[in-house]
């Protein structure tokens, strides 16, 4: 069932001022045919986690733990082997479509690259397939768009191109890192609808990352809530929304702007400095339910029925 499993992943960055603890000991499973959400503030380590899957972390990153794709370990494999997987079996789309495509190459050159590389298509077959895929992601006049350069297309259009490029090789996993953050709200919904549709049509698993819990609740099957490099809570969408157990998740849900009332409920305080994380729970400084255990460096992981998992000292049961 599980197509990707991450175990005890730790990511640190060596910088001039010390060690940045970006991801601290997280584990998660991605199942066939599901959309798994990861939600968290910026700096929570959600992007670094997926970049680690793709082998795209910065050079000063120190990684430990294990990332298994179809039971094949991805951490530490050779670049040649990794290049056979990324862009082929695991594809990724990025936050800012305006800069994610090479401004000096036209759409066609960039779009057919994965097919030529991974599927050994001839150029004309690859172009035909690319046009078919552009049609699928609802880009009109696809044949002419192929000759365009990125600066001639809009952000929403470019994100569709990115999605088409990711889908061309029919990957088993699609990773979408904040795919709608840089786009207009109307375009945002269209792109999210498209991602939702892909799950059915392509029979693939998706990891969707967003800082916007609203986006996550709309699209995902299961949700991971990340904070300062730790997974605080994980459950299916229903349980996260109705039965959230972790104080951080509750605060996040409460902070969603609400049409009925004008009052906003921000989470007070700032995220901890990743250079010197507190012992135990990283949320302790901002937590309303903080008690003695939390400040003593205790940080308990618990699993409930229905796959509901929390990383908190509070005994909710």
């Amino acid at each position: 069932m599980s197509i990707l499993s991450i175990n005890d992943l730790v990511i640190k960055f060596a910088v001039e001022d010390g060690i940045v603890h970006a991801v601290n000991n997280i584990s998660l499973e991605l199942n066939q045919n599901e959309i798994l959400g990861i939600v968290g503030e910026s700096g929570s380590g959600k992007s670094q986690t997926v970049l680690a899957i793709m082998g795209l972390l910065a050079n000063n990153a120190l990684i430990s733990g294990s990332i298994k794709f179809n039971n094949q370990e991805l951490l530490g494999i050779s670049k040649a082997k990794l290049n056979k997987i990324r862009g082929n079996e695991i594809a990724m789309i990025f936050q800012d479509p305006m800069t994610a495509l090479n401004p000096y190459l036209n759409i066609q050159t960039q779009l057919i690259e994965p097919l030529l590389l991974h599927r050994c298509y001839t150029k004309s077959d690859a172009i035909a397939e690319a046009i078919r895929m552009l049609d699928f992601v609802k880009i009109h006049d696809a044949r002419n768009k192929l000759k365009c350069y990125p600066h001639q297309l809009s952000g929403g259009m470019l994100q569709r191109v990115m999605i088409a490029m990711a889908l061309l090789t029919k990957p088993k996993i699609l990773i979408a890192d904040e795919p709608t953050t840089a786009l207009d709200v109307t375009v945002q919904t269209e792109i999210l609808d498209l991602i939702n549709q892909l799950k059915v049509e392509f029979n693939m698993a998706t990891i969707l990352i967003s800082h916007d819990i609203g986006v996550i609740l709309n699209v995902c099957d299961r949700v991971n809530v990340m904070y300062a490099g730790s997974i605080m809570e994980r459950a299916n969408v229903h349980d996260i929304f109705y039965k959230a157990k972790h104080p951080y998740t509750k605060a996040l849900l409460k902070s969603i702007p609400n049409q009925e009332s004008d009052i906003l409920y921000p989470i007070s305080g700032e995220p901890p400095n990743l250079l010197k994380l507190p012992n135990g729970c990283p949320f302790q400084e901002r937590c309303e339910n903080k008690f003695s255990k939390c400040t003593q460096g205790i940080f308990i992981k618990r699993e409930f029925s229905n796959g509901h998992y929390i990383n908190c000292n509070l005994d909710e049961s």
Partner: peptide, 10 residues
């Protein structure tokens, strides 16, 4: 970012 995309393509 576009070089990162190119890397992500394999």
């Amino acid at each position: 970012n576009y070089i990162r995309t190119a890397r992500a393509k394999g």
